[in-house]
Design a protein around this nucleic acid. Sequence first.
DNA 1: GTTAGCACTCGAATAATGTGAGTGCTAAAT
DNA 2: ATTTAGCACTCACATTATTCGAGTGCTAAC
Lengths: 347, 347
Amino acid sequence: MLTDRQLLILQVIIDDFIQSAQPVGSRAISKKDEVSFSSATIRNEMADLEELGFLEKTHSSSGRVPSEKGYRFYVDHLMSPFDLPKNEKSFIQQAFANQLLEFEKVVQQSARVLSDLTNYTSIILGPEVYETKLKQLQIISLSDHTAVAILVTNTGHVEHRSFTIPVRIEPHDLEKMVNILNERLQGVPIIHLNRKLRTEIASLLRKHTDESDKAYEYLQAALFEEQPVKLYVGGKTNILMQPEFKDIDKIRSLYSMIEEENEIAHLLRHDSQDIKVSIGQENEIEAMQDLSIITASYSLGDEQMGTIALLGPTRMEYSKVISLLNLLSNRMTKTFHSWYQDDSDGE
Amino acid sequence: MLTDRQLLILQVIIDDFIQSAQPVGSRAISKKDEVSFSSATIRNEMADLEELGFLEKTHSSSGRVPSEKGYRFYVDHLMSPFDLPKNEKSFIQQAFANQLLEFEKVVQQSARVLSDLTNYTSIILGPEVYETKLKQLQIISLSDHTAVAILVTNTGHVEHRSFTIPVRIEPHDLEKMVNILNERLQGVPIIHLNRKLRTEIASLLRKHTDESDKAYEYLQAALFEEQPVKLYVGGKTNILMQPEFKDIDKIRSLYSMIEEENEIAHLLRHDSQDIKVSIGQENEIEAMQDLSIITASYSLGDEQMGTIALLGPTRMEYSKVISLLNLLSNRMTKTFHSWYQDDSDGE
DNA sequence: GTTAGCACTCGAATAATGTGAGTGCTAAAT
DNA sequence: ATTTAGCACTCACATTATTCGAGTGCTAAC
């Protein structure tokens, strides 16, 4: 167990290092107001803290640097809560001031706010379409053999897919088909669309229309080709400003990592309500082992929807980032919730 | 005027440097098969070429490096045409093999192909919507006071805007309104939509529906808020692989440049049919003065639509890049053209 | 006009040297 | 028994020398 003095010293060291990015020496600590011991004492404590694995030296006669274990301990026990300065709070207010009606815009805005306020890189995972429901389906033919299907959800999200139809379809038949589909599918959660389409609707369609048979297949294929997850990245270059990224190879490997959208999506997605902090090696992916990732989730109604993440050096302003992430995930959740409510009332 | 020998030597030097990124010495040149003079002769010629401004030394006893004037001359007079290797040609074929029905996909695919095949960074400017015509307009209400308007063009491009309507609108009225709008606006070039909406349609709407007055205003506002130009960037990180980018500050300034989408759009847009090469300082923008930009345009029908650009070091494989850009811009133009044709026939 | 030869230049790599922040340890002070 | 002052020691980092070699320019011979 650590003594109070050790806790204090560890905290001060980490705070200092997070600020300065420089190894912290005993003398520097002893000069801080919070600390009233001589540098020699600090040195002794530091040696102990190092032995316990919370600190490291960069070389035999250097100051100390937090180890990952140190950061972990800091995040779990030491960190003091962070008060966002007023101007940053109002910055957030502003960003959400205009009516944000589209899912995309809310998410993009949030990503921007996050990266602007932290100088790290933010990544937001678009929603799994769990809870969103189909509001309306439209099929618009572009030419004899091409058409575009448009899905609108209750969240204002619009998706479209183009597809070809080898057989010609009468506008009349198309209309009939769309009507049937809408009648049956409105309000159905997007995630169940596919099943419902296959089981209930297919036969129904066959009954009512002549040629829709084949058209239906193509529609189905177009609508349910699997969709890549959407990633909204903000402040991609911020991380370049961090002094730990002096090294081009690191930058390269990080960036090519970020472009592996699927990997990232997989890595980030998390389903707890809480904020999760992954420090350095705690991340499996190699290119990220110098980085920390903090993730939070936002939700719509009861269902969790997506993930917000912030990517920074292990020397991250954990305290600030966490409160910011909390704030923003709440804000997003609230915004979406309000739509959802609205919608349930409206129907 | 340059002698034939000087031309040859200049060409060989630039070819070599484009390959190696290393200053080229006289001995290296004299050893090439194409050249049958001693290194001393080459040295003399080099000295002359330097005096004429086509070559530079990096320091007083270094090999020669092409100057920007040198590259310019090379591009204008020296470059030998490039034959794409078979495998690259088939790579392109492949990329366009699947039916590409959506504008976005074609453009994205092209950007990818370009950056993959060159290892530079490609930027494609989305189309000005000059020639595309409205295929269909839909308005779908999400709740009492929010709705989403969807525009589909004959090119399969889908756009949507959400907006709020302070007054409640009867579904019936909405439908009527949409019908009127479609009747009047289908086939109208997107670029004229706004005018037409204001002049002809507004009064018509007022006649036919009660409350649409206000709704109309909001619709108008939503539809014609000015749209940022879309930029499709491929291979953002490729440029990091170039040896000339050893320096973090350069990378930073370049990347923050690329994020200034509007600037870029302005910089790149060009309206000639030809391919344009801007070498180094020929670009106004500071962060780009170590780079060359090559732009080509693609078009739909007669009207020029957008710009494809490739961003690389001044030491660029001009020859290859130019033939690739030609190929791709043709391919894009052809693809779009086929839709356009298709559509005209279909109506 | 072309080329061989040679002295010279200068960047880049390597080694030598100094500087200072920071440590660990010992012994004195509290 | 802690705490602290003091001191020798370590090691990254910066600065300066030293060497090395690719490449040049020039001169003189071919």
